[in-house]
């Protein structure tokens, strides 16, 4: 008789939402995969399917500046910029995160300043920084104004992540370390940093990718020489060959490598920890 009763089958909503989720993932990745495939388009130079005579010619084309613009130069600026932003974001937002664990005058003001910096439209900020540099008689450059523009967006993100991480770090760890005779520096080095390290990797990932992919904030602030997203932007209007897709594939691959390094190192650390080293 028990056969007529339900023994823990999943509700219909599960299947409906699973379908929604699947469709969403296809929606997210489908176009990217299409671009990935079409970047191997043959000499027909067709921008749409089908793929004919797959070749690597468009990747070749990509690094030929006469044809498509200064892609390698843009890479050469975007990568170091992203790395600098990454390092500074980690350093600055981690130290600031620690400051916010205590009460101090101005904490609220600085916090709201960071939040405001996060939500102010990137274009507004771009104009502001350009105007500021004009008034100071400085020329805009990717490593000055561009760097600052990227930091104004990466730092608040990093700070929010640090809040989430440090919120879970009980002060009693540090107190225990002091009790056991650790100096302040040793406490940070041997107790705090190991605990928050996976979080710091997350901050680094954000710092890198926010800078590497940032468009509106870069637009007026990087000066005469484009970073990668700006280069792609110009290409969208004047390049009508699959070289554009090839460039998309290359940047996406770089992004995926960075993500893989970040997530991989987090996984490795967690594994080491659960094994007790």
């Amino acid at each position: 008789m028990s056969a007529s009763h339900s023994y823990g089958s999943r509700p219909w909503t599960f299947y409906a939402l699973a379908l929604l989720f699947t469709l969403f993932v296809i929606f997210l990745y489908g176009p990217m995969i299409a671009v990935l495939i079409l970047s191997f388009q043959g000499p027909s130079a067709s921008l749409v399917f089908p793929l004919r005579d797959p070749s690597l010619m468009w990747f070749d084309e990509l690094f030929n500046p006469r044809r498509v613009g200064d892609v390698s130069g843009a890479f050469g600026r975007s990568l170091p910029l992203a790395l600098i932003v990454m390092v500074l974001t980690v350093l600055i937002s981690v130290t600031a995160g620690f400051a916010f664990r205590r009460r101090f005058k101005g904490a609220t003001a600085i916090f709201y300043m960071a939040i405001a910096s996060l939500i102010v439209p990137g274009l507004v900020l771009s104009i502001g920084i350009l105007v500021t540099f004009r008034y100071l008689g400085l020329s805009a450059n990717w490593y000055t104004s561009g760097l600052g523009a990227h930091l104004s967006w990466a730092l608040p993100f990093g700070l929010l992540i640090m809040f989430a991480i440090l919120g879970r770090l009980s002060p009693s760890y540090e107190e225990a370390a002091y009790d056991l005779g650790a100096s302040k520096w040793r406490t940070v080095k041997d107790v705090v940093v190991p605990i928050v390290f996976p979080g710091m990797i997350a901050v680094a990932l954000f710092g890198f990718t926010l800078s590497y992919d940032e468009f509106p904030r870069s637009w007026l602030t990087v000066g005469t020489k484009n970073t990668l997203p700006l280069e792609i932007w110009t290409m969208t209007t004047n390049v009508t060959s699959p070289a554009l897709y090839a460039l998309g594939t290359v940047t996406t691959v770089v992004s995926f490598i960075v993500i893989a390094i970040a997530l991989g190192s987090i996984v490795i650390i967690q594994r080491k920890r659960s094994r007790g080293k």
């Binding site: 008789m1 028990s2 009763h5 023994y7």
Partner: peptide
């Protein structure tokens, strides 16, 4: 939900 067996409350079999 039990994997097997019956749960009765009063005179009702309530599994499910």
């Amino acid at each position: 939900t039990p994997t097997s067996g019956e749960v009765w409350i009063g005179d009702q079999m309530v599994v499910g």
